[in-house]
Amino acid sequence: MINVNIYRYNPETDQFPYMQAYSIERPKKDIMLLELLNILKEQDSSISYRRSCREGVCGSDGMNINGKNGLACITPISTAIQKDKIDLRPLPGLPVIRDLVVDMTEFYAQYDKIKPFLQNDSAPPAIERLQSPEDRAKLDGLYECILCACCSTSCPSFWWNPDKFVGPAALLQAYRFIADSRDTKTLERLDNLSDPFSVYRCHGIMNCVSACPKDLNPNHAIGEIKSMLLSNKRNIIASDGVS
């Protein structure tokens, strides 16, 4: 048997959230956690969670699995289980709508803030803009982000300042456009990040790197942004007061 403890909260009926224990026969074959949740939902249809692609590319089912953020659909129960037990909680730091479903408004707002679209001052050519394979390779490890929020919601700085610290996910995308040879707004993009909070609240805790289900490295991207801010003599670290 496996004991699955699920964070439950329904705003219409519950004053406080609670953990509900479910017990389920361990499937003979190693299945993904999302499949286990689907089986549990057949027993208790009131359990709520997001899911879509069930193969780790849409980013819907980010949740906190035994204390670590990850995607349920690509986490085999064999790796999730600890002492015959799995604890499932919503992603930390964001308001809970219901059960494992969080309100991602603040997360998306940070994404919008970094202007996540290519900007180029010149008129586009009749064909594609050219880009060398080397320049294109600079986008690898950046563009693959699925916006699951596993990184940002594992980051203590984001918990503390979700409105002012851009957070690892959106900073990874900020760097994706800074690094793109086709984007001409690099200086503006850096300027927009040069305040004491947007980037500099990253203290290199590295939770983002360990949480990312796609093996991306937001911490590295943030480091690159910081270096560019410094080399552009645009740093205003002094006014931050190192915390």
Partner: peptide, 20 residues
């Protein structure tokens, strides 16, 4: 339509000559 997607920023893989 494809060139337009590229202009919007779609990170296509590239040949040595820089084309899609």
């Amino acid at each position: 339509a494809v060139f337009e997607l590229e202009h919007m920023g779609l990170p296509f893989s590239r040949f040595e000559n820089g084309r899609i």
